[in-house]
Design a protein around this nucleic acid. Sequence first.
DNA 1: CGGCTTTGACCGGCGC
DNA 2: GCGCCGGTCAAAGCCG
Length: 421
Amino acid sequence: MAPQPKPGMGSSGFEGRQGKEELGAAGGRGEAARDCSPAKAGDGANNNKTARNGDEEQHQNPAKKARVSVRARCDTPTMNDGCQWRKYGQKIAKGNPCPRAYYRCTVGPSCPVRKQVQRCADDMSILITTYEGNHNHPLPMSATTMASTTSAAASMLLSGSSSSSSTAAVPGNLHGLNMYVSDNNNNMNSISSTSPSYPTITLDLTSTNNNNILNTSSSPPHSSSSQFAPASSLNFGAASEPATWGLHNGAGILNYGIGNVGRSGNAAHYRMSGPAAGPSSSSSHHNQSMLADSTMVAAATKAITADPSFQSALAAALTSIIGKNNNSSGKVVTSSSRGGGDQPSYLMNVKASGDANTAPSSTTSLSRTGSLSHHGQSAAGSGLVFQAPSSSSSSSSPHSYSMPAFTAAARDASTSPSEDN
DNA sequence: CGGCTTTGACCGGCGC
DNA sequence: GCGCCGGTCAAAGCCG
């Protein structure tokens, strides 16, 4: 059955014609998802089908026109991460009306690196990007730069260092869990100056460490560990401290306390506990305050605080990828408090059993359903990227964050200024 | 014309 | 064993 030709093909909004994100990010048509109205090819029934953006609309609109509207519906913009990607598929994943786009690295002839981009079902303004694999080729300068800058940011965040060592070559490996907080305002390669800044947080699950556990609950990182010895965990928020983000690891605790900060991002304080402190022994926190005195830290802070619901969004984002209420053994139970009334309990089971020593292409299972896997570590920006909207009220001002890092090709119309083609 | 996106179909893994 | 679901393939169409 030959697939019948359909209208509505053509360039994808954000990728831009070139399909190269470097350009797409900048020059993309700016057709980013306006609204993720369930293009629902079928959240259940037809889920097997490739995502069709705005199906209904399609068969009503002839080719070109449809193309635009289709794109406007719910596409999956990607961030400019310095690499070149080619889209090879798109699909609606269960539980998220927004399609997930699949990209392949085209920098190298047979580069195994892939990435998935999907909007967070909970907060459409959040973009989730998952990288898989190792590049088998030298990275473009832009990607390299990107990697190092984000890494530096991560390092700083986690180490508490306030230096601006943006040249840190070492990945922001948070004891195995990489977290990048960045701003997209500034960047390599033709990042569009027209795009507002999009604070971005990247969680790198493909760290060189074997065992990473993400934790968004108040419970301490479990060490139900025989199976998944939690080398580290990221804790962003107990029910009692909905706005506290932190990192737990065997060696200590680092919390990003954004307490009750408002949307505009008040100063965050960082508390770090010494190695002696158990992963959850909050009492032993040293509460060593660190001033957000570097631009990077400040940027990170803002990125985190830009959206009050970021926590839930992040949890949701993770959940959307990893699975919800998946209470398997030895994994971390997470809870996320949404702004709304109920507080769905997200059980995020993240196990990065990757081995840094494995061959680049060796598959590493990341989650229980096999829905996600990675193949070691990708040099540039491996991991999940959560893109928070810039503070909605200030989205029109490409301001504030000066931390060099990822550039978001994505934009969310609902939070972004009007942009005409 | 080349390169890229789109998108239905296909495939394989996983849960029941 | 079956069905669901995510991921990938590949033909068709479109744009620069």
